[in-house]
Design a protein around this nucleic acid. Structure first.
Lengths: 141, 141
DNA sequence: CTAATTGCAAATTGTTTGCAGTTTA
DNA sequence: TAAACTGCAAACAATTTGCAATTAG
């Protein structure tokens, strides 16, 4: 999807900063921290301010353009929401490797939640543990 | 389980601070933020320092005594891990109500992860949305 | 007695905010 | 031109750290 289209469809004004943010997110297929995103954005558009990053992450989240997941260390991670390919991750606590998981718990939960009248709008599901390499003691990847 | 026993079994020295922390956690059946925990601990053991809370949350997490889940606002939440009664929550974004969910995605995932050689040690699963009351526009509980 | 643990105060880190100037529609 | 958006600098809140004194085993 075209970036400008995406912004317009969501009632967001097209600014260079937003185009840069979305360009970075579109070219990344893993999660990014706000810091990582910021670094990549200023490579494209020098001078962009960190608070602009945060403000836009917030509005894009509110519009449902992004997913946010909490990470093991303080910083939250962000990713562009794509229709196809919604997935979760298993994150290795030793080397940080992120293994995609083709299973989403929401499908199994819709009914239970519906029975309780709860309408889910966001979810996070993260698994932490040891990846195959680290289990074998091969240490950092 | 007796608190002192629990500490000894995990190679942790029995200190008044740790006993207070575990006492609070045992008497609470929802998640607590570090702040909430701190408030309740100093009610039992005045003078306890905030850094002691954080340090002990860390060691208890490392020993697997606790679960930690990220929350919608910055602060992480903690709960005593109990054999029975492991559960997750659906959190209302409007009123903050926390609805227990008797479903854990891990069970459905063990095989997929195992196939990939991944050994899960922790997980978080949180659902956000609108609770029944707020859906009906009754506002804050 | 020794290593673990604590309190304290200061530092760090991730994130948010007020405001004045700029840009988009 | 009005509302939305940005940069800047300062404020915040959650968490972490160094260090000296205390305490559990």
């Amino acid at each position: 999807m075209d970036i400008e289209e995406l912004l317009k469809q969501n009632d967001l004004k097209v600014t260079p900063q937003r185009k840069a943010i979305l360009a970075v997110l579109q070219n990344t297929n893993s999660f990014l921290s706000a810091q990582d995103l910021f670094q990549r954005v200023i490579a494209i558009l020098p001078g962009t301010n960190f608070s602009t990053i945060y403000r836009n992450l917030d509005v894009m989240l509110a519009k449902g353009l992004l997913c946010r997941v909490p990470s093991d260390n303080g910083a939250d991670l962000y990713e562009l929401r794509r229709e196809e390919g919604h997935h979760h991750h298993a994150v290795c606590k030793t080397c940080g490797a992120s293994i995609p998981v083709d299973y989403c718990p929401m499908e199994s939960l819709i009914q239970e939640l519906d029975r309780k009248g709860f309408l889910p709008t966001e979810h996070c599901f993260e698994v932490y543990g040891l990846c195959a390499r680290c289990r074998k003691g091969k240490g950092k990847q």
